[in-house]
Structures are given as structure tokens and as C-alpha cells.
Simulated scan of single mutants.
Amino acid sequence: MDLIEALSDRFAFQQSLYRETVDALAPPLAAAAEILAQTVLSGHRLWIVSGPGTHYLAAHFTERLWYGLERERPPFAAVHLPAATTPPHGQPLDVLAQPGDCVMILLGHEPSETIRAAMRTALEAGSPLIVIGHDPDEHIWSQLRGGDVPVALPELPPAQQDELLLFLLNALTETWEQLLFGELV
């Protein structure tokens, strides 16, 4: 197999993956975009918590929310708390996440202690949760409430999950921007 053929196979795999997952992933992503838009328009905060292996994707997502929009948007607070800064007992989230003032976005390949601690904090504060990741034992999904949004990634090798997660975060940012400016109703 030559390099062009190998690269062509990668492109074909990604195309196939997006086609196969669109029906499962587009509805929760749309719900997540609506929650993010409502949160920002009401002056509340976004907490983005990354589990091990997703720090750089969460940082990219936060940067896109702050600076990656094509137009000026209302000011808002979005903070990324990587796994390294979020100890298992939940602080600083226990102090920062006040009831009803934020939405928590959890990103992870697999449930980690960081994700579990952030989830406990959000549940106790009554904050809506958007969880984007893979939960093979459904430990996280089983704890979500009615207004929470699970975006369940299929089981894939970590590098391919990263590619899909990056695509989903970019799509979420673009959809959120369209909602903010009334382009999608």
C-alpha cells in the first residue's frame, strides 16, 4: 500500500464514521447547542471539565468559544478546568459552581475520577450537564437527569475518538454561534 492509498483509506474511514453516527450524535449536539446559547444569553457561566487525554481538545473548544466566532457575541464566562487542576474531591468546582448559575460540560474518553467529581458537583448544584464522551459501563449516563445531555461517542481507538470529538466540538461551536445570532430557529 502506498502513502496516497493509506491516506485515502483514512479519509474514507472518517466519511463513513460521520455518516454512521450522524443520526445518533446530531440530536444531542443540537440540544447541547441550545443549552449553551440559553446559558450565555442569560448571563450564566460555562464550566468545561476535561478528563485524562482530552485536555487539549477542551482547551481548543474553550478558545473557539472565546475567539473563534465569526462575529462579535455577547460577553460570557467560559472556564476550562483540566483534570490536573480538579482534585477528586471536587474543589475548586464545589466553590465556583453555584446553584443555577452555570452549565457544566464534561469531556472524556472514559469516566475518570475528575469527571465523576465534576458530575457530583453539578448534580448537587442543580447545574445542567452536557457530557461528551464514551461510557461503556453507563456509570455516567445512568446518573443524568431529564435536562442533561449525553453525547455518547462510539467505541473507537483513542486517536479516532479524538478526531470525532474535535469534529463534534467544532460543529457544536458553529451551531451555537448560529443560535446566538438567530440564524437557526
Rank of each mutant, 00 (worst) to 15 (best):
Q161R: 14
L156D: 05
P99D: 04
M104C: 12
P157Y: 12
A159P: 11
A125W: 05
A122C: 05
L41Q: 12
L168M: 11
A58L: 03
Y67P: 00
P99I: 00
P28W: 03
L93N: 02
V22P: 00
V103E: 05
A152E: 08
G90H: 09
G100H: 04
Q91R: 11
P92L: 09
T39D: 01
Q15L: 10
A58I: 04
I4T: 12
D162N: 14
E34R: 14
P154M: 07
L129G: 00
Q14L: 15
H134K: 07
D101R: 14
L36G: 02
L93M: 05
F181P: 01
Q14N: 15
A24Q: 12
V40K: 10
P154R: 01
A77Q: 13
S142Y: 02
P136K: 02
A78P: 05
P111F: 00
L69V: 06
L93W: 03
I4L: 11
A125T: 06
V131C: 11
L172I: 02
E20R: 15
L166S: 13
I48Y: 04
G108E: 07
H55E: 15
P52E: 15
W47K: 07
P87M: 08
E183D: 13
E70Y: 12
G108N: 08
E163F: 10
I4C: 06
Q98Y: 04
A84Q: 14
T39P: 00
P87D: 14
T54L: 10
P82W: 07
E72R: 12
I4S: 08
A30H: 11
I48V: 15
G100P: 03
E72K: 12
P99E: 05
Q143G: 02
L106M: 06
G182Q: 04
A97H: 04
D9R: 14
R64I: 06
Q38A: 13
D9W: 11
D9C: 08
Q143H: 06
Y67W: 12
G53N: 07
A58W: 07
L7V: 09
L25P: 01
P157A: 15
L17S: 09
H139R: 14
V95A: 12
E174P: 01
